[in-house]
Design a binder for these strands. Structure first.
Lengths: 124, 124
DNA sequence: CTACACTGTGAACTATAGTGCACGGTCAAG
DNA sequence: CTTGACCGTGCACTATAGTTCACAGTGTAG
């Protein structure tokens, strides 16, 4: 498919897709069909979905790129790949812990509002 | 307290604190002590902590300002406040679920690498 | 062949959230 | 009164993540 269809399927603007390409996040198929047009397949659609997911979790594009390259690129040793993935896993677990604290705080605030905002305002 | 102590307590740079002031997020006490120095109390420390938490939830500063202003105005009813907080709570729980999926994915990738990258690549 | 939709490029522009710097006034210890 | 820490202002700068634009080539339906 061309970039226009990828745009429609993914919901991302083509300018954004081109930015991702420049950042090394989404490389079109090699050929460019002689006319220079970028060509994509469903793997690219999946990839954009993964990028979006990672972004909503607070990862920056360059970190997402590093993450993806680590598991696609044969230039890293097994140990390096494992180290990279385990670093990300630690980050995810830290974020989970933060969110758990936030969840508690929000729940406390809701209770406090229900009590008529009396007593001590819950603190983060 | 002066801005320097607030900086030390909150962990935010004083330039950041001044930006928040310009954005209407954190107004110092009224007086400015005649010498022009900003004056803060512990309420300001709490407020900065709340701003930081809201940010980690993915709120933008202008949205945080709007929410806080509405809250303090008295222009929100108890039901509206509860609704706003419960929406945030839902968002937090959604993020938690996403992170759990991401955690599983990363753990699968680590296992896959340990197996020598044989078999199907884990998908998000 | 023409019209029009689609694609390419690079550069400039926007929005968000800060950070750093120069320059000058203020405060308090010695 | 001097020195050094602290504070004020404004402006310029950075980083991230896009968006918009002008201009040019391509593809295809009629």
């Amino acid at each position: 498919m061309n970039i226009g269809e990828l745009e429609r399927i993914s919901g991302l603007k083509r300018s954004t897709i081109r930015v991702y390409e420049k950042l090394g996040l989404l490389t079109p198929d090699d050929d460019r069909r002689g006319n220079g047009y970028r060509t994509y397949g469903h793997a690219h659609v999946d990839r954009l979905a993964s990028i979006k997911l990672a972004q909503t979790l607070g990862f920056r594009l360059k970190d997402i790129r590093a993450l993806m390259q680590a598991w696609e690129n044969g230039s890293m040793t097994k140990a390096e790949k494992l180290a990279a993935m385990q670093t990300r896993l630690s980050e995810v677990r830290e974020k989970q812990a933060s969110l758990a604290r936030l969840e508690t705080w929000l729940a406390d605030i809701i209770l406090w509002i229900e009590r008529g905002e009396t007593g001590t305002k819950p603190k983060p």
